[in-house]
Design a protein around this nucleic acid. Structure first.
Ligand SMILES: [Mn+2]
Ligand SMILES: [Mn+2]
Ligand SMILES: [Mn+2]
Ligand SMILES: [Mn+2]
Lengths: 220, 220
DNA sequence: AATTATATTTAGACTAGCCTAAATATTTAT
DNA sequence: ATAAATATTTAGGCTAGTCTAAATATAATT
């Protein structure tokens, strides 16, 4: 049985590998987990003993297939709990991360499977991230960053690249939420800002900080 | 902020005090928490430092009013999570204790209040135990043990005195569940067993081990 | 009242998970 | 190729929570 701390390391390894590739460096892990590099080295050695990562001194760590399976299970739990908190308890999408961070560590063989059924097998969480199924498989969706659209393109908002609550709250204020349909009215090359039409009735200017962190699915 | 372990000690203190009264002895706590008396002494000293228990060497421990408030809050969380697991996720009443034992420690100012609202403010948990409200108040119900009824008495099952899963599963098999209406057909003085009629269509003999651990509300 | 039994506390040790500071390996720049 | 900068590991230490064994206090028995 894994401790909460071990589980958090697996999840961090998984997340960093997705963004920066393998092997994952000690310092990147220390940053992600807000801990010291020395602590990371200790824990990586422990995960190596348990055969959840491959590791050689000074060469970084890579999840083994068992480590990857466990990390995916954690992601599944995290995202299903987020769905529950938003769908059933009425939390905002900017409020659920820290709670899910705790709930994902509840030990049970079937709790999350029952939760998934109760939620009617959602495939994406409140931030538009895909939810792995019981076997670790998740739906892949064609998507691109809003900043890569051109004038005249129409698209639907399907996800976000940042998850901090300030960013999410700001998107909420702008009425930019998952499922929104929008059209690019104009792109200003100078600062990469965009004028967009959020269907049906909002027209607004958004900075590139926003457009670089919103995933959309372009209508063909 | 309290650790999971500190919270479990507060809950144990509360539970033992209800059954055996104050002060609560070191050994009773060690039994309840399946730990050593030495560990209990250490923790009691820590709770004393935090002003959550009154304590004098060799004289046992008593929850302070703040300690009692926190213990009641824990009981509230435990029972509301049990309701959720049974009502929403379809668990049996014999399966939810250990999960609630973990879920009760999730840290959040309003999670359990939202859960309570979502469950429509249940006043009793799946075992018939009362759920404290946000202010720590809970509904008191007139109840007595089934073994104290006499021939001809009619009553409704409202709770159980034991919570281990074997006992609960056995009650389930006997079709004795919260809300059942029953009538005492005959009492056998020799071994205190009873013949009862479980409305509408079951007539059965139950041992005193059962009748001593089932709470009923007698119809007047 | 003295003795014995039981309950409780203290002493000392262990693990997990974290830390800082120092040592060492690797990478980058000159 | 050497030196400087950066990354990583090691060494040693801290706290929370647990343990066993030994010491001490309280309660029960004779
Ligand atoms: Mn977590
Ligand atoms: Mn999410
Ligand atoms: Mn607990
Ligand atoms: Mn209960």
């Amino acid at each position: 049985m894994l401790s909460t701390s071990e589980e958090n390391y697996l999840k961090a390894l998984y997340k960093i590998a997705q963004v920066k590739g393998n092997p994952v460096s000690t310092n990147d892990l220390a940053d992600e987990l807000s801990t010291s590099a020395a602590s990371v080295t200790d824990m990586i050695k422990k995960l190596f003993e348990k055969k959840l990562v491959d590791y050689q001194r000074y060469q970084g760590a890579v999840l083994t297939s068992e480590g990857g399976r466990l990390a995916t299970e954690l992601v599944r739990r995290h995202r299903l709990w987020e769905c529950f908190l938003v769908e059933k308890l009425g939390y905002g999408w900017d409020e659920v991360h820290d709670l899910a961070e705790q709930l994902e560590h509840i030990k049970s063989v079937d709790l999350v499977d029952r939760l998934e059924e109760y939620l009617q097998f959602p495939r994406f969480d409140p931030h538009g991230d895909p939810i792995p199924d019981r076997h670790g498989k998740f739906t892949i969706r064609s998507q691109q960053l809003l900043c890569n659209l051109s004038q005249g393109d129409r698209a639907e908002v399907v996800g976000v690249a940042l998850h901090d609550s300030q960013f999410l709250r700001f998107l909420g204020e702008m009425h930019l939420e998952i499922g929104c349909v929008l059209e690019v009215l104009e792109v200003f090359e100078y600062d990469s800002s965009m004028r967009i039409h959020i269907v049906p009735d909002t027209k607004t200017l958004i900075s590139s900080i926003l457009s670089k962190n919103i995933y959309v699915k372009k209508y063909s």
